[in-house]
Design a protein around this nucleic acid. Structure first.
Lengths: 344, 344
DNA sequence: GTGAAAGCGCTAACAT
DNA sequence: ATGTTAGCGCTTTCAC
């Protein structure tokens, strides 16, 4: 059932029907006539074809979203926030998975071919091919969760350095002094900035910030390996601040393997507060990021930029929050044991 | 840069260019000429416009996916599996969130308006408005994870009854006899069938299947409430088989609240094996469903039906698998305590 | 205020 | 083997 059919049923020309149907142009047609047309449309069950309209107006009402791993629970709330906010603004969401940087670039090309009006990348590395492609094509794009070094695009992230500072300050307040960091990949902004945040916070309280190992991915396995290396290199450690929750859970495993107990021997702090980390044992103390809000904010900025592509490239930095649970404790006994370990 | 531009650059007519560009019609044009056209296209950086092509051919290369909650980790692997398989078949994925049945129906209409060529619903209730709409519109649709009673659409699900049987048999083998069930919503196939599976499995070993409470949603909070009610009504219980993992985790909370310990006092089995349940404490014994495979299978069936809408309405039932972890144990001491609770 | 006509970018009869 | 023509469903000038 097409617009032509509606026009015929109402006894008017298609163009008149078009004007009546579209709220933005309805005032151009006589009220009474408009009503008749609308009634006919309703009657026939007419649904406008956005593809055809888009062909004419150059719009697709589509937004592409690229995530590194749909199956990763962290991205679910971001996606949900984006999806809801974009749906409200009248955009449908095209979701694409891109586990690697090369794939992300290919996916961006694919989305561009689909004539998306805007994109959201949750995959950005600090130097990123996919971001380059977005900038080249000129399609309005916003980065979420991770930024790029050159800051060419609007970005919505959590304050990663402040988050790490929260973690370190909490541990210091508990009395820890020998604190290590399991860092995320250095080529991703979160890995880089959280490490910087750790080092700055440590220096600010005159503590040695050099106990750091870098995990080669945000996975439990990588966290296990990195934490094991960290503990081996610095046996005196009483606390570990990890760059994210999965790394922290990997650290749990590493501790267990060498017969250490959390938090009795070593305290652990994560980052993200992803689903279920309140139920692991011990319940993970972590830095909470409002992922859904990240998505909502990104959607808002994107909508603004799609409407006016020359809008300023503003970025949003959300303030994270510390959530204290069972994985951190005072090092009272821990220091004694740690000293013994370091000695022996 | 349009096809016309390419044609001009190559000194041919648009239709010839079109034929040369499309692999399916390339054989209609002289090899040498085709090469020249392709070169020109490459040169100008031509990208075909699928919207325009679709308008003519009546195709959108879009598939809609409706999930009840993107933020729920269970749906992430299903989505990932669908997305990957559909991308391979040349379809882009439109993801929509529909927390309620009414919203799902609205979302289906929206996707139909977007001219999607097929749909996947992970939201189906046993009687479902959204499913009705799909059947009416005639858009090829497949149901995943949840079926509907009337079985009008191809469906890809796990064998829910067999899964519950796995859980019950495991508990019975450990020596449990007083086993309760925290059921999922009765208007969703998984809730209904898993309850049936529980009851059948219990009867088959001559056990009383009547210790059941129904949670009013697949959430931890609902599980907590339902498990608390179950324990209050049946203080002699030594084991709980929950209809899904979130309900099981809710049961953990309920047990803790009344000072019971899992698995010492009461064993708990979940259903789904969703991400991270191996890390909670105690690690959850559960029935694993191959969610990614669910998604892949659904994608395959959908593609087949989109190609030939008259293809048979076959359904796929995947066999689940028991994963034994730390939340189940022999009731040796539990029975004594349970008897004491029941008595006092 | 309404109708006529053109055209968005592409494909598919039809003609040569 | 290539060009001509028409048209997918809609919007938007331009007339009247």
């Amino acid at each position: 059932v097409t617009l032509k059919a509606v026009a015929q049923a109402a006894g008017v020309h298609v163009s008149t029907a078009s004007r009546a149907i579209n709220p933005r142009t309805r005032h151009l047609v006589a009220d009474e006539l408009a009503e008749r047309i609308l009634a006919a449309a309703q009657d026939l069950g007419y649904r406008p074809d956005p593809l055809a309209a888009g062909l004419r107006t150059g719009r697709s009402h589509l937004v592409g979203i690229v995530v590194p791993d749909i199956a990763n629970p962290v991205f679910a709330p971001i996606l949900a926030g984006l999806q809801r906010a974009l749906a409200e603004a009248g955009f449908a969401v095209l979701v694409a998975n891109a586990p690697s940087a090369a794939e992300a670039a290919a996916v961006v090309d694919g989305l561009a071919a689909q004539r998306v009006e805007g994109m959201v990348l949750a995959t950005a590395g600090r130097r990123d091919l996919a971001v380059d492609r977005c900038v080249e094509t000129g399609i309005p794009t916003v980065l979420v969760n991770r930024g790029e070094d050159r800051n060419r695009l609007p970005t919505v992230v959590s304050d990663d350095r402040a988050g790490m500072r929260l973690a370190v300050d909490h541990l210091v307040a508990l009395g820890h002094r020998a604190i290590g960091h399991v860092a995320g990949p250095a080529d991703v902004s979160t890995g880089h900035l959280r490490r910087r945040g750790f080092e700055e916070a440590m220096r600010d309280v005159d503590l040695d910030p050099r106990a750091v190992t870098v995990a080669d991915g945000y996975t439990r396995a990588a966290g296990r390996a990195a934490a094991a290396a960290l503990l081996a290199a610095h046996p005196g450690l009483t606390a570990i601040a990890a760059a994210n929750d999965l790394l922290a859970l990997g650290a749990y495993e590493a501790l267990r393997e060498v017969g250490l107990e959390c938090p009795r021997d070593v305290s652990v702090v994560g980052h993200n507060d992803m689903p279920l980390v309140d139920l692991v044992s011990p319940a993970l103390t972590t830095v909470r990021i409002g992922h859904a809000e990240l998505g909502r904010e990104a959607a808002q900025i994107l909508v603004r930029r799609m409407e006016r592509p020359d809008a300023p490239v503003g970025s949003v930095v959300l303030t994270p929050e510390l959530v204290v649970r069972g994985s951190t404790a005072s090092p009272a006994r821990a220091t004694v044991r740690a000293a013994r370990r370091a000695a022996g």
